[in-house]
């Protein structure tokens, strides 16, 4: 029995976001990696309420042809697959990988990520610019993982990227948003959707991302590496909704000092 009842939208008006002409209700985008099994992947994604999922493109394992395939568990007709370029270090690798993804899935919406070396896997921005340019030229609609650098984010937007996705902390670190001020600057100036991609560790991190004005949150490890991924997926769904409502509601001003919530008049004497 579902006990999480969101504030009903009939009262509040429909709240959707749009990227590259596609409209989504869920503001949570989830990865499909790092799960114990494809069954667990499917259950967690279902619980997250996500409509868009990131996927990787890899060689088919020819020695185990009967290995289950992601598509058999996470239906591409139901979820928008967002193929990524994880593992690509050059523009050429990224273009080749996503051309294959486009052929396998038949769509143009992709996630570009070009990473530097471990242990940080920080976005390699010069290589990201080069790959973004090549992909856009090739007709892709590029959602781009990037540094929390307002100049870089603006430049990617001006190049034609359909969403910018700065990190909140290194990939898979679960450190939470280390840079809310930088993210706010990016959000303030952006004319395309901004997603925090990487760094979310628990539900409050996702809520903060939405409170500061992100259009959506992209996460993977926070759910997949939770003790109970399905429950954490549900927590993330609620957190993103809560953070979005809080953003739209407009938070109260901060004040130094107390302001009693109960009236002081009418006290018994």
């Amino acid at each position: 029995m579902d006990t999480l009842i969101p504030v009903e939208d009939a009262q509040l008006g429909e709240d959707t976001w749009t990227v590259a002409g596609r409209q989504f209700h869920s503001r949570l985008v989830v990865g499909t990696g790092k799960y114990k099994s494809l069954e667990e992947t499917a259950a967690a994604i279902e619980a997250s309420g996500a409509e868009m999922v990131t996927v990787a493109v890899r060689r088919v394992n020819l020695s185990d042809r009967n290995a289950p395939m992601l598509q058999d568990h996470v239906d591409p007709a139901r979820y928008t697959y967002l193929p990524n370029t994880a593992g690509c270090h050059t523009a050429n690798d990224a273009v080749r990988t996503l051309r294959l993804a486009r052929e396998a899935g038949g769509w143009n919406l992709v996630k570009l990520e070009v990473l530097g070396p471990p242990p940080h896997l920080y976005p390699d921005m010069p290589a990201t610019f080069e790959a973004a340019e090549a992909l856009i030229r090739d007709g892709f609609e590029v959602m781009v993982y990037c540094a929390d650098d307002p100049i870089a984010a603006k430049r990617l937007e001006e190049m034609g990227c359909v969403a910018v996705m700065p990190l909140g902390a290194p990939i898979g670190s679960g450190l939470g948003l280390q840079n809310p001020a930088m993210l706010s600057m990016i959000i303030e100036q952006a004319r395309v959707p901004v997603l925090v991609d990487a760094g979310v560790g628990t539900a409050s991190d996702a809520a903060i991302a939405m409170e500061i004005g992100c259009d959506a949150v992209l996460l993977n490890s926070a759910i997949a590496h939770a003790q109970d991924p399905v429950r954490m997926a549900r927590a993330m769904k609620a957190a993103v909704e809560a953070g979005r409502h809080a953003r739209l509601a407009g938070r109260m001003p901060r004040r130094m000092g107390a302001d009693p919530s109960s009236p002081l008049a009418g006290l018994i004497r």
């Binding site: 990865g31 499909t32 990696g33 990787a56 890899r58 598509q71 990524n84």
Partner: peptide
């Protein structure tokens, strides 16, 4: 050989000696 073979051409595309073929699919990823 680093060029996509579109699905509609699978039947019509004969392979040559030395061809480098990559066959990929979607897997879980972040």
């Amino acid at each position: 050989n680093e060029a996509i073979v579109v699905r509609s051409q699978y039947d019509a595309t004969a392979l040559d000696a030395g061809d480098q073929i990559e066959i990929v699919h979607f897997i879980g990823g972040g």
